[in-house]
Each structure stands twice: as structure tokens, then as C-alpha cells.
Design a protein around this nucleic acid. Structure first.
Lengths: 193, 193
DNA sequence: CCTCTATGTTGACACTGCCCACATTGTAGT
DNA sequence: ACTACAATGTGGGCAGTGTCAACATAGAGG
């Protein structure tokens, strides 16, 4: 069904949503500018009025993913509990996000987006990282984690949950259900401290 | 320079080598069947006599990467030292391989290869995994790791080094040199046990 | 020597990202 | 209100891709 007006009115948003859905349904590989345009009901060139190129659209998608990831970690870490429990819960939320939106997660960290210098993308990804920094700092201040090597401890926590998430998304963890994966993630996180 | 003979003689091997070099030089995204064929000095359709499609060639490249990874871990873990030191060294070798061949490493674990059912690929990747199993089992038998949750402990070790490797390759670790990354990897591995 | 089959080549098709020129529309200034 | 202009969307085109079908060549076995 074609549009009634020549101008779409809110094409940028529509393209973003269409891109997210296309990635989720067809996978990042089958992600195509022209397919996104089709889904948004515009010509194959309309996206270029809102995004410089394909990578720019992907970057925007990734940025939105990072904001959602940040929100998930914040929410998980905002519940009752000690600083250590909040850190663990935020790490679990990281893995849970990857399992909930595997293709989205893939776009966020894989080439070509991962080298993007798009300010929105950089800001969103740094915000997600800062969330982890926050929870680790809390643990250090409560004395449940050593106070030294602050940066390395954050990167250590990140590496662990990122590795679990990546292996899970790649289908390399021998668990069938999401619950099984998350149970293992909990085991690993508990074991790591 | 064109070939002198109509038949290449050893095209499959040549294609594999050309593919590995193309990936290393241009990145996995710019990897192209036609480009590989060009580098091997054959027509754009010749590869189809040796690989079913593009993904099959990528799978073969990935399989070779897994064999190299396995060899690196075996060598690192074959040196003197306790079982724990051998496990740690093999984990460091995992990260070192990813840093030495980041694009190759990417192909091995990312879509579309990661869902490949090519027997050579499956065998090579399982062999790499079994290497880790081996070193963890040694630690459990020496009593330096708890004897329970055998599978989970292997996956835990794998997740950690895989996460470090992935973040490093994605350019998300704030270290400038390979040595810096490896130093952090050593810190994280030490901390994890 | 002659056929058969494995291996390479050429040509084609649909598709992609991206560039151009053009069409349409909302808007700002008079 | 009218007009120039900027923003937004369209259509066509180009080089490049993966893959298929038809054809060419060369080694191997009878």
C-alpha cells in the first residue's frame, strides 16, 4: 500500500524500526538498505536523505541497542541487594540482552559498526561501559573487590559476560534453552569472584 | 600474469591461501569470491569446482584457523609448569592467536560460518574445544580446580578468553599495544581462578 | 587413438550500494 | 499571498557481487 503523501513525514524513525525488524528477522547478513527502504515503503534512495550510507544506518541501530542494553543493566542492578549482587545482576542482564536480541547484539559489536566514529554510537556504547564501571566501583568502595586495578577489573567483568554472550549467540554453548544459558552465566559469574 | 596451462593443478590449495591473505589484507567484509579467484589467477567461476559456495570456502578457511588455534594452545600448554600454569598459558595463547590473526579469528566465530555443518569445520572447532577440556581436566585431577561442574568450568574458561579476544579484536580494550592487551589478559586469567 | 570426466571459462541474471538528475513539498522572506 | 529556496522522495544508471547454465579444454583409462 503506497503512501498518500509524497513526503513520508517521519522516515528516519520508520527506517530505524524497519532496520531493527529486518535484522531480527533475516539476520545481519541479509540486512540490506534496499530491503529496509522497501519495508518503509519508500524508494531505494530515500534512506540516503537521512543516513550517509549503509554503515551509518547500522551505527544508528547499534546505538539504539546500546541504550537498551544500558537500560537493562541499570534496571537489573537497581534492585535490592549488596553491591556485589547488583554487579552480578547487571552482568546477567548483559547476557540476557544478547540472548533476547542476538542479531542486534551482533551488529553492536561486529564489523563494520564497531569501528564507527558516529558520535551517537560512541556516546551510547560508552554509556553502557560506564554502567559497568559504576557497579564495579561500588563493589570496590564496599571492599568486596580489591581497590587496585580499577580499570582492569571492569574490563575483566566485561570480558567474561561478553564472552558468554558471544559464545551463546554463536551457538557454541551446549545448552538448549535460554534458561540453561542464563543458569550457566550465573555459575560463571559467581565463580569469577 | 596468466597461467601457462589451462588447468591450474592445485587450485583448491591456492584458493584457500588466497582467501586467507585476502581476508587478512582487506578484512572479512571485503572478502569476495571473485577477488579470491582473481588472486588465484582463475576465472570468477573456477572456485565453484572446489567449493559449493562462498560460505563453504569461508568454512574451510575457518577450519584451518581452528587447527592453527589448537596448535598454538597445545604448544603453549606443553611447556613446563603445573597444570594450572599450562591452562593459563593455553588461554593466553587463545588471546594471542586472536590478536595475531584478528580477521581469521572473526571468520571462525561469526556468521555465516558459525552455523556451518561442514564436517571439516565442525571437527576442527571441536578439536580446539577439546584442547581446553584437556587442560581443565588436568587441573581438576591435580585438585587445583574443584572436581565438580566439569563442563561448566571449561565453558567458563573459554568464555573468559573468548570475551577478551573478541573485545580486543573489536578495538574495545583501551590498550594500544598487543603487549598491553596480553598483559591485561594475563591479569584477568590470574584473577579468574 | 578415442571417449569420458574433471576442471576452467564465458556469458548471463538478479541483486546490491551508491551516484546523478529530477520531482515534489514545506517554509521563510518579502 | 507569492516566490525563491531548502528539504525530502523518485527514477535511472553504474560497477560490482553470488550463482547458474552452457561451453571449452585437458588428463586418464579403455
Amino acid at each position: 500500500m503506497p503512501r498518500r503523501t509524497y513526503h513520508h513525514g517521519n522516515l528516519r524513525e520508520s527506517l530505524l524500526k524497519a532496520a531493527v525488524r529486518a535484522i531480527a528477522e533475516l539476520g545481519p547478513a541479509a540486512f540490506t538498505l534496499r530491503e529496509v527502504a522497501r519495508r518503509a515503503g519508500v524508494s531505494h534512495n530515500a534512506p540516503y536523505r537521512h543516513f550517509q550510507d549503509k554503515d551509518a544506518l547500522l551505527s544508528a541501530v547499534a546505538a539504539q541497542g546500546f541504550r537498551e542494553l544500558t537500560a537493562g543493566m541499570m534496571e537489573a542492578g537497581a534492585r535490592q541487594g549488596s553491591a556485589l549482587e547488583r554487579l552480578k545482576d547487571s552482568g546477567l542482564a548483559y547476557v540476557a540482552f544478547a540472548l533476547r536480541k542476538p542479531e542486534h547484539f551482533t551488529v553492536m559489536f561486529d564489523s563494520p559498526v564497531c569501528v564507527s566514529k558516529d558520535p551517537e554510537y560512541v556516546a551510547a556504547s560508552q554509556e553502557a561501559f560506564q554502567t559497568l564501571v559504576h557497579f564495579v566501583r561500588d563493589c570496590q568502595e564496599e571492599g568486596v573487590l580489591p581497590a587496585d586495578h580499577s580499570q582492569e577489573r571492569v574490563l575483566y567483568a566485561w570480558s567474561l559476560v561478553h564472552g558468554i554472550a558471544k559464545l551463546a549467540v554463536a551457538g557454541r554453548l551446549p545448552f538448549r534453552t535460554r534458561a540453561g544459558m542464563l543458569k550457566f552465566a550465573k555459575f560463571a559469574i559467581d565463580e569469577s569472584i
